[in-house]
Design a protein around this nucleic acid. Structure first.
Lengths: 125, 125
DNA sequence: CCGATTGCTTCCCGAAAGTTAGTACGCACT
DNA sequence: AGTGCGTACTAACTTTCGGGAAGCAATCGG
């Protein structure tokens, strides 16, 4: 098994191979790999969507968690929120450029999880 | 912003764009995107390592969480555990083929988080 | 016999995540 | 007049996560 070039580039960031506890990347990683964060980002990778669309697509999410997750992602500059002052209110969410870049990393991950899920959960003794 | 080819392949899995609540991939995704799971998998992507190495590299992890995370990843068939009956005990952990495949998706994610962390946390109003 | 070593396990507790239910708004429709 | 819609926010509550500390096992060097 050869070392991947990716691992090499990681080495450039963490030369001693230690992921420091206080490192800012930890916080960011926690946000973007959160249970709902991943699903929201991946859903938005297909384009702008409304609150109710996201609620439906991230099946099982509560309104509280949807609001909270979107707020975090917006604060992190990964998601754009555009509210129109119409009745009933209409709010569209979309990815920022940075968010889109991130989503190109997350989509393969979700796809992988989907492709391997049955094997993984079935093969447990 | 064009639709990525990744999003297209996702579409093949979730044709209606909904990520079902009970879907097995949810469970797998939760395991592999867990706070410590990501770090352990990425650390192991550089090769076999001992318990104490992992404890040091995933800085800040408690022994309890290290044991729990490794057990989950092992049950999922992503990590190999090989214990030698010597005193003091020596236990080596490594990635399975499937785990290695997964790590090639996670490493870019961690690298991205590291590269963007300062911008993200600094740019918040 | 003492303590060091390594890899865990167990227990307790506080923090965080998450759910459910209730509130609001302002207009359109019945 | 009353009800529903879409997008929230808040409070109250429950469940899970996770840290810290302690204990344990087995052997070896002193």
């Amino acid at each position: 098994m050869k070392e991947s070039s990716n691992a090499t580039s990681l080495r450039a960031s963490f030369s001693d191979g230690v992921f420091p506890a206080g490192c800012p990347s930890r916080t960011v990683l926690d946000h973007v790999t959160s249970k709902w964060g991943v699903l929201i980002l991946v859903a938005l990778s297909e384009g702008e969507q409304r609150w109710s669309d996201l609620r439906r697509r991230a099946d099982g999410i509560s309104e509280k968690m949807l609001a909270q997750t979107l707020k975090t992602l917006e604060r992190d500059g990964l998601v754009n929120r555009s509210a129109q002052a119409v009745i009933p209110p209409r709010v569209d969410y979309s990815l920022t450029d940075r968010g889109y870049e991130l989503s190109t990393l997350l989509v393969p991950l979700v796809t992988w999880a989907f492709d391997n899920a049955d094997d993984i959960l079935h093969g447990q003794r």
